Amino acid sequence: MTGGRREGGAELAPPPGESPIIVLVRPQLGENIGTAARAMANGGLFHMRIVAPRDGWPQPYAWRAASGADKILDAATIHPTVADAVADCHRVFATCPRPRHIVIPVRTARAAAEDLREINARPLRAAVLFGPERAGLDNEEMACADTLVRYPLNPAHMSLNLAQAVMILAYEWWTATEPTPAREFMTNETRVANKGEVDGLLGRLMVELDASGFLDNQAKRAGMVRNLAHWFQRGEVTTQELRTLHGVVTELSRGRMRRGRKPDLDESPPWDDPA
């Protein structure tokens, strides 16, 4: 590390074309700038602009807190005012935790990310303003924006630090086009069994249960069979689980045949037999 900067860091680079510019307005601590860069890297954002940082720039603590997002900090530009930072932008969004008495479009982070994707695809340049940690953006800074972004959080406690605020937007930006399914059933080396395979196990199980006498009560037999079928059919059983259950049925069948009789339910069950 030289001058507070880590040698190397993650291999980050700006994506092709336009992508949102994160503008940190009057940030107070180097650590907050660094963790904001880390959040940007998580969400695939690269362009950072810093307006009038309280403690000047560069700040060694920023690189220490960035957790490898060094290249974002290396490429960050410093500006004296918000107007200067967004002068080359076509659209400007501003995060705003409190109501303002102005007429302006308001978006959630998710809707803002969708808008940003559409804007950048045209391609137009868009920036998102994040105010200083304590007070947020002032009225003159807000006047530079054409759209507000508000996060619907617990109204009893809506306080976020700078990196958290950046992370929410970065996450929504990334997931707007990320192909990971919202719901997934992990099967690893096996697969979900089809209905025919499940029916094959159930048929075999019924044969062995009849042979063992478990289903001798004719009045209850149909209901017991339905319950067993529902148990297997209501979930996504894998082929590996079916193979395991087939092995269980095989061993139960061998045990019954070795004993040469149906189990007497008035006696202790076989698994309790010390022999």
Rank of each mutant, 00 (worst) to 15 (best):
D138A: 07
S159I: 12
L148K: 01
F130L: 03
L137D: 06
T177M: 05
A170N: 07
Q164M: 09
S159Y: 11
L162Y: 08
R134E: 13
Y151G: 00
M158T: 14
P155K: 05
D138K: 03
A145H: 07
R150P: 00
N154L: 05
M158L: 11
L153F: 02
A143E: 11
Y171A: 10
Q164I: 00
T175H: 11
A135H: 15
L169E: 04
V128K: 02
E172C: 05
W173N: 10
M167S: 15
R150D: 06
L169M: 14
N161Q: 02
N139S: 14
W173V: 12
M142G: 05
V166N: 12
G136E: 09
P132I: 02
G131Q: 03
A135Y: 13
G136Q: 05
L162G: 03
A165L: 06
L137I: 08
H157Q: 13
T175K: 11
F130A: 03
P179N: 03
Q164L: 00
T147K: 01
H157R: 14
D138I: 09
L162K: 09
D138N: 14
P179W: 07
N139R: 10
P179S: 02
N139D: 15
A163G: 05
L160T: 02
P155V: 09
E172I: 11
L137F: 08
R150C: 09
A145C: 04
A163D: 06
N154P: 00
H157E: 10
Y171E: 10
Q164Y: 04
T147N: 08
Y171G: 06
G136Y: 08
D138S: 04
V149R: 04
A145G: 08
S159F: 06
N154Y: 03
I168R: 02
W173R: 11
A143P: 11
G131E: 07
W174G: 01
E133C: 04
T147D: 06
C144M: 12
M167L: 15
R150I: 07
E172W: 08
P132F: 03
M167N: 15
L162S: 09
E141W: 09
E140M: 12
A176G: 02
L153C: 04
Y171D: 10
A176F: 05
V128N: 05
E141K: 01
A176W: 04
A170I: 10
V166T: 06
D146Y: 06
E140A: 14
L153Q: 09
M158N: 11
A165R: 05
Y151Q: 01
A145R: 03
E133Q: 08
E133Y: 08
L129V: 00
Q164C: 02
P152C: 05
Y151N: 00
P179Q: 02
T177V: 13
S159K: 10
I168M: 09
F130T: 07
R134T: 11
A135D: 15
T177D: 10
P155L: 05
Y151D: 01
P132D: 02
M158V: 14
N161L: 01
R134H: 13
G131K: 07
A145N: 08
T177L: 12
D146S: 15
E178N: 15
M158W: 11
